[in-house]
Design a protein around this nucleic acid. Sequence first.
DNA 1: TTTTAGCACTCTCCGGGCAGGAGTGCCAAC
DNA 2: GTTGGCACTCCTGCCCGGAGAGTGCTAAAA
Lengths: 343, 343
Amino acid sequence: MVELDQRKRVVLRAVVEAYVRSAEPVGSEHPALLEELRVSPATIRGVLAALEEIGLLTHPHTSAGRVPTDQGYRAYVDMVVEGERLTPAERSAVRRRLGAGGEEPESLTDQAARVLASITQYASVVASPTLGAQTFASLHLLPLGERRALAVIVTDAGTLQGRAIELPDGVAADDLERLSHAVTRRLQGLRVADLTRDRLEQVTGEVSRHQHVLEALKAWLTRDLTREGRARLRVEGTRHLLREPEFRQPEAATSVLEALEEHTVLAQTLAAAPEAGVLISIGSENQAAELRACSLVAASYRVGGRPGGVVALVGPTRMRYRRAASAVRYVADRLSEALGNPA
Amino acid sequence: MVELDQRKRVVLRAVVEAYVRSAEPVGSEHPALLEELRVSPATIRGVLAALEEIGLLTHPHTSAGRVPTDQGYRAYVDMVVEGERLTPAERSAVRRRLGAGGEEPESLTDQAARVLASITQYASVVASPTLGAQTFASLHLLPLGERRALAVIVTDAGTLQGRAIELPDGVAADDLERLSHAVTRRLQGLRVADLTRDRLEQVTGEVSRHQHVLEALKAWLTRDLTREGRARLRVEGTRHLLREPEFRQPEAATSVLEALEEHTVLAQTLAAAPEAGVLISIGSENQAAELRACSLVAASYRVGGRPGGVVALVGPTRMRYRRAASAVRYVADRLSEALGNPA
DNA sequence: TTTTAGCACTCTCCGGGCAGGAGTGCCAAC
DNA sequence: GTTGGCACTCCTGCCCGGAGAGTGCTAAAA
């Protein structure tokens, strides 16, 4: 990255902020620029040309003003470190939605996605805590009528994951309980992702009478870790995107909506979110082609002190980055708090 | 409704089907009409004019062909009773996604929404089984560290609902178990919606030592039934809607997306779905103003033999009703099967 | 009485051409 | 280094006219 002198920085910043606000190309006589620099339009033209030269701005056509390129946004984002604080009202809205306490992780992430979308007016994505990263607390086999039981895993974050399994004849409630306890004792404290077949084999000895039940459990656990182990994504507020002028052409809108509904693509991008701070991925920086028209602002939250999941915003590249970063960080932190008090 | 003679019925049907296929107004010389009736365009013009007279067709402007009105679609739908069978491949796709068995209701409804959207290319909505309508099977208090426990309700359909509660000092694991059993014994077999405070009061006597735990449970149960009692909606495949020509104007698209993201509005409309058969609500027939540009095709599914929830499709009024009705019915039935074997 | 052919009419949908406006780039003067 | 002036480019909106599509009406044919 070429170093920018003071004046170029001021101009870049002013152009980005004016353009983000109005969605209109900004010309050399734009009031924000004149006021910021107190020099004539002609002088500003020179700076604009220079910024275009190094690839931070473009103009759509000869007689249009300047528009930031993806690199321009990047330079802006790197330059402007501080976020744009949320208003007290917004903060308290977030706290209210997440602060109830005792809620299930699933419904908390739901709330997080909704509140994030509503305060920022962008689309929000929240990856619920991956089961795999959580700590296994206990297994329960709850009788469900005569020949069925509900196997339930509980994690220390309070996540429940259940599945009905068929029982062979002659398995008493006591047997189920003994079996649950045996498995729980054996596996307690492990990360769910570590509940491999091998670990489960060790339990066999103690309760060998119920080999098939164990077998069903193994099948479930190992399958779950591969399939459900991928975080479930909640997407909220896609409607806000349609209001943005860049998504008024139906093709643009469709491609973004597709990206947002195609969770695998999104999940990959989110995986890059750092543990602290905020990931900002701008337009062409996105791996996924469908997301090239958007930017993504993501922050991780923690569950019981460990990495848990990601909250993110998706908007046009012409995005309020500072505000988005603050919002994402704030919601992630409150979510960490809400999910963060393991026993 | 005015009775239609044979010819008018044939013409209406042909116009609707041609328009649904092509999204272009159909004129008196449209091949489908000529072939169907084997009369001259001039004759057909007369019939078209008559259908317009009684409000089943319009034309956007003088020199355009005819387009069905909402009443036209309604007459068509009422007239054409049989659905359009899904292909064997589509049926097996549905069965594959829902047939695994032993899945949790939550993930089954997820699958249902996805498969429905993918085979029909419309937006799908699935209301997961309301907790309230299910039968309470058991309550469990699972220790979660020193002074916390996870209260879990299990229904006979295998739905889990949990919430962490704080414990006062000196509550042993045994106590929790006794308490769980007492509550379970007392309430087993009731509908979850019937777990009122009154019912819970009856338990008090037996385990009065743990009054505060019971108090927390009551608070949770009664709150849950009002708040979470509302079904959670999953919306899938909104991207397909943007492909439809009627939603190419951004305003139209936004209003539909808003309706789909604003679950309360949608929920009301879905509530009208009959237990058997299929609800078809066309354009202006929808209560919700945001849905006036769409049609909604919905069918109910059952959980353990009782009314459970609704699956629906949302598309433009120019919708493949017969196909949508079949798809919705088929998915609802398979979902009923998957959720239908209570112990 | 119903059907058909003919015809005038209406309206939309391009494409071209033209004026207005915005913003640039360059240059000469300060 | 900064500024004012000026020519230049290109988009945008607008009007206009012709082509095309489909209608409604009427008079003749079946």
